[in-house]
C-alpha cells in the first residue's frame, strides 16, 4: 500500500523503564537454575503503566518533530489500564493536545504498527497533517510460564507528517497480512494470556511475517539486499533471526535493532523500539524493513527510507541505547510485588 502523497517520520522516541529483571532470577525460582532465552527484561515500576510510558515517549517524539499540530493520537497496546476508558485521551491531555482524533488500538503485538499504518493513511489522504502513533505495553506473563521470561515493558512513539521538509525518513510503502489464527489470546477479565506453545511459530509468526514481507517486496519490486537494516517482531531472540534467514536477510542487517536479548518482548513496542534503535544509527539513504507480528494473527511490513534531516534531528536526542544501558537490576521478589502478584 502506498499513499498518494509522501508521508514522513518527523520525530521518534522510545521509553524503556529503568528496572531490569535478569531471566536467571525467574529460572532460579521455576527451574532451579539457568536462564531464559533472553538475558533480562525491562519491568515497569510501581507507578508506571502504558499511559505514563506513552506520555514520556510521545513528549520526546513531539519535541524532535518541532512541536507540530497533532491531528491524531493513537495508542496501540494490549495492556490498557482500563477495560473501558481510552488511554489516548489521557495521553492527549498530558501533551496538551485537544483538537485531535484519539483512539486505542489493540492487535496483540502489532497494535503499534497498526496505529502507524492508519496515521500514514490519514495523512496520505489529506485528512490530517501530523499524527502520533504509539506502540506500548506492560506485557503480562503467568508466573512459571515460558512467557514470563520475555514479557516486558516499553513504549515507542512516531510522529508522522505531511511536512516533508522536516522528515528524517519517509514511508515508501506498507503491507498487512492477516488470518484467523488462535496462537495466543487473553479472554476478557483474565489477567494473563494463554498460548499454544510451538503453534506460535510456523502457522503464526513465521507464516504471517513471511507473507507480509514477501507482499511488500513484490509491491515495491525490492529484494532483501536492497535494505541496509531489517527489524522483525522479537518475541524471543531466535524467531527474528530465523524469519530473516528464511526471507534472505542476514544477521548483520538485524543486529542493531535486535533488542530482545537485553529488554525482552514489550509486545506492541517490540519491533517499533527496534526501528528506533536502528534510526538512532542509520545514515541518509539507508532503507529499513520493519515487520511486526500480532497474534490472532497478522503482520504489518514497512519500507522506510532515511533522509538527510536525520543527522541534524538526532543531535538533541538521547539514544535508545543509553536507556537500555542505564538500568537498575531487581530480584524476583521485587518483580512479583511490582506486578501485583505478591500483595500484603
Amino acid at each position: 500500500m502506498k499513499t498518494k502523497t509522501k508521508v514522513s517520520i518527523t520525530g521518534y522516541a522510545g521509553y524503556i523503564p529503568k528496572l531490569r529483571l535478569p531471566t536467571s532470577e525467574i529460572a532460579q525460582i521455576w527451574k532451579g537454575g539457568g536462564s531464559g532465552p533472553n538475558k533480562a527484561k525491562s519491568v515497569a515500576n510501581f507507578d508506571e503503566d502504558i499511559t505514563t510510558m506513552s506520555v514520556e515517549a510521545a513528549r520526546h517524539a513531539i519535541i524532535m518533530a518541532n512541536n507540530p499540530d497533532i491531528g491524531a493520537v493513537f495508542v496501540g497496546s494490549e495492556s490498557k489500564p482500563y477495560a473501558v476508558k481510552p488511554t489516548s485521551t489521557i495521553v492527549a491531555q498530558a501533551l496538551g493536545i485537544h483538537k485531535t482524533l484519539a483512539a486505542d488500538f489493540e492487535f496483540a503485538c502489532k497494535a503499534g504498527t497498526e496505529a502507524m499504518q492508519v496515521i500514514t493513511g490519514l495523512i496520505g489522504s489529506g485528512m490530517i497533517n501530523n499524527g502520533i502513533a504509539l506502540g506500548v505495553d506492560t506485557a503480562q506473563g503467568r508466573p512459571g510460564d515460558s512467557l514470563e521470561y520475555t514479557a516486558s515493558s516499553g513504549a515507542a512513539a512516531f510522529v508522522l507528517s505531511s511536512e516533508n521538509n522536516h522528515g528524517l525518513a519517509y514511508v515508501e510503502a506498507s503491507t498487512s497480512f492477516v488470518s484467523d489464527t488462535g496462537d495466543f489470546w487473553r479472554r476478557q477479565g483474565e489477567s494473563y494470556p494463554r498460548h499454544l506453545s510451538r503453534f506460535t511459530g510456523d502457522p503464526a509468526y513465521f507464516f504471517h511475517v513471511e507473507s507480509s514481507v514477501r507482499t511488500l517486496l513484490e509491491e515495491i519490486n525490492a529484494k532483501p539486499t536492497d535494505f541496509t537494516y531489517a527489524v522483525f517482531h522479537q518475541p524471543n531472540p531466535k524467531f527474528p533471526l530465523e524469519v530473516a534467514k528464511r526471507l534472505g536477510f542476514t544477521k548483520e542487517q538485524l543486529e542493531v535493532g535486535l533488542l530482545n536479548p537485553e529488554i525482552g518482548n514489550p509486545y506492541s513496542a517490540s519491533s517499533p523500539l527496534g526501528l528506533i534503535a536502528t534510526l538512532d544509527v542509520a545514515k541518509p539513504g539507508d532503507k529499513i524493513l520493519l515487520a511486526s507480528f500480532g497474534s490472532g494473527a497478522g503482520s504489518d511490513a514497512f519500507s522506510i527510507i532515511v533522509e538527510d534531516n536525520i543527522l541534524n534531528k538526532r543531535k538533541n536526542i538521547v539514544p535508545l541505547r543509553q536507556q537500555i544501558d542505564d538500568n537498575i537490576e531487581i530480584n524476583y521478589s521485587t518483580y512479583t510485588k511490582l506486578r501485583g502478584i505478591l500483595n500484603k
Partner: peptide, 11 residues
C-alpha cells in the same frame, strides 16, 4: 544539588 527531570507517573 543533583539535577532532576520531570516524569509522568501514576500517583
Amino acid at each position: 544539588g543533583k539535577n532532576v527531570k520531570r516524569v509522568f507517573r501514576k500517583i
